[in-house]
Design a binder for these strands. Structure first.
Lengths: 335, 335
DNA sequence: GCCGATCAGGCAACGGCTTTCCCGGCGGTG
DNA sequence: CACCGCCGGGAAAGCCGTTGCCTGATCGGC
């Protein structure tokens, strides 16, 4: 690997001069020397060692992002927003997948800290485990204490700037609409119990429906299509007279639709199905999924913006609204 | 940010000893000193500066990945495989989105080189632009010349280890099946002209159909749902007697399905639709999309494995097969 | 009791780059 | 013509770890 010293030698100048030319320093350099340096750079295909640069100047330019799983459509969309802003500002992004393992999350925070990232964005639901939250908080605090910026998406329990999707409000909208349409026996396809996203949406839903949700009508499963299918099967078998199924994310909703079709249950004729998130797929399934739209990419973009903007002293919190999207999978409760 | 020197000072030892304790060096250290160092590390929340470490020891541990767009389901899936293997081997991944801009790709290669990544994985279609290919090749060569490892996915034109999805073979399978079912007037929803993936699939398709594809029956558009919808509309208006539409990826296929439904065209009764890739969504739309399965995650996993395994001297090439997946959107040509 | 072997720990060089500070030379001015 | 100031260029001091080598001490053996 060619080094700056190699370039300087070849150009017949000092490393200092070479560095100044390459970085466009404000210090003037004679045109002739500049030419020679540029020529040497091209010939040697020289690229400055980013680590050495980072060591020499305190300026940090990469940003760390912690998500549950980039391949999940939810996070793919959030990540799109994050990337957009990061790229606009000339920042490189390191993406880490925690696969919903809180310990791995803590490890990754340290790892990102070691990388001297300019900011860490934590995307994705928080956990209900206080021990793990405390540990994570402590690590984030250590990072923030050294000037690191922290932004979280949808984690009301952590410090740092935050962007909050209206999970509860979304649940409420859904619940109210179901109630309006006469649904009284509503089953829920919930995500993992440990996630705050699950409990927030659940709480909103109960509020919207106008009463507590019997545990017997809730099935906790993975936030995936297959999780949704399995949970739907269980619900169908366990709850007689079910007229609607609320999936706490669209993937589960799609799973529900699939299982219902397989069992020959008409949607929304016999059973209505609603989702959550408004992922791209929601519009493409049949019947098209009625769901709650969350501005996912916007969530990411805002979070990255907060993380990269100058800090404010206090933690900034931005709430992003949810909106009901009417499609075809929700109808009035059958008489 | 606490440094090793801080830790050493606090523990009352030399930086050398502190370093040895922290890295579990083979050199023995008295238990008492070890304790003191560990205590200081915990108290200061010390995390070694990864850049300084990288400078001090020649070992590189992060891997760069260049994709068109992580949020695209195709790349999300490929990335899943890449990440899995990288994580297993304790490597961090830096993901860069080129958004199909070849120049940005070249820039990113340099950037990854500057980051001293252990390997660069180039995922996603190559381009038909020789100028740009030459430039990219030159940069990759410069990287490889300094011991960097390169692996490409689906880019037969570049050096380095390669994993190749059977794009052409997949096209052939599709073509042959359409022919068998009596389709003679077949329209194609193609991706961008500049991509080798597009031309490879197109070539296979023509071979399978048993004859050249008239340009008039091909529409080039974005590899997206909306691109597919628009192209379908054009095709429908321009080509009378169309009995089948081949989408060169599933997103476009879904777009086609949507437009056809909006226009009240029965699928596959009046027009058949087939896709390509077998993304998760293909099974969930109505009618479920008949498509060609490519082992996307496997593609990623293999590429990462090649990139991280010891080099072989010569470039290794692995071909991954395509398989027809029969679902509901393809039927015999109407009489 | 003395010498050599052994071992734990520290010194210091090194990795690649940036940047401050210094120096020599030039031009301008009195 | 002499002096001052300015300007372009270079030497060198870090930034933060790692590690080869050296030292001082301890221990064992004779």
């Amino acid at each position: 690997m060619a080094t700056l010293a190699d370039v300087a030698r070849r150009a017949g100048v000092s490393p200092a001069t070479a560095s100044r030319v390459i970085n466009g320093s404000s210090k003037p350099v004679a045109d002739e020397l500049r030419e020679r340096v540029l020529k040497a750079v091209a010939e040697l295909r020289y690229v400055p060692n980013a680590h050495a640069q980072l060591l020499a100047r305190p300026q940090r330019s990469v940003v760390g992002v912690l998500v549950h799983d980039v391949s999940d459509p939810y996070f793919a969309e959030v990540t799109r927003g994050l990337q957009r802003v990061a790229t606009e500002r000339g920042r490189l992004v390191i993406i880490c997948n925690s696969y919903r393992d809180p310990e791995r999350e803590v490890e990754y925070v340290d790892l990102l800290r070691a990388q001297q990232v300019a900011a860490i964005v934590l995307a994705g639901s928080g956990y209900h485990d206080d021990t793990v939250n405390a540990l994570l908080d402590e690590r984030l605090a250590a990072y923030a204490a050294t000037g690191g910026r922290v932004a979280v998406i949808g984690r009301h329990r952590h410090r740092g700037d935050a962007v909050l999707p209206a999970n509860e409000e979304g649940g409420r909208l859904l619940g109210a609409e179901l109630r309006r349409l006469g649904h009284r026996t509503v089953g829920v396809l919930a995500g993992p119990r440990t996630l705050t996203t699950t409990s927030d949406r659940l709480a909103g839903l109960a509020a919207g429906l106008g009463g507590p949700l019997p545990e017997a009508r809730i099935r906790y499963a993975d936030f995936t299509r297959d999780g949704g299918s399995r949970a739907t099967a269980e619900l169908l078998d366990a709850v007689p007279g079910l007229t609607a199924i609320v999936a706490l994310n669209d993937s589960m909703g799609v799973g529900a639709l699939n299982l219902l079709r397989a069992r020959g249950v008409r949607v929304p004729g016999q059973v209505s199905v609603v989702g959550f998130d408004d992922m791209p797929i929601a519009a493409d399934v049949t019947p098209a999924l009625t769901t709650v739209r969350l501005p996912l990419a916007e969530l990411g973009a805002r979070a990255m913006t907060l993380a990269l903007d100058a800090p404010d002293g206090r933690d900034r919190v931005e709430a992003l609204p949810a909106a009901l999207v009417h499609r075809d999978s929700l109808g009035p409760a059958p008489a």
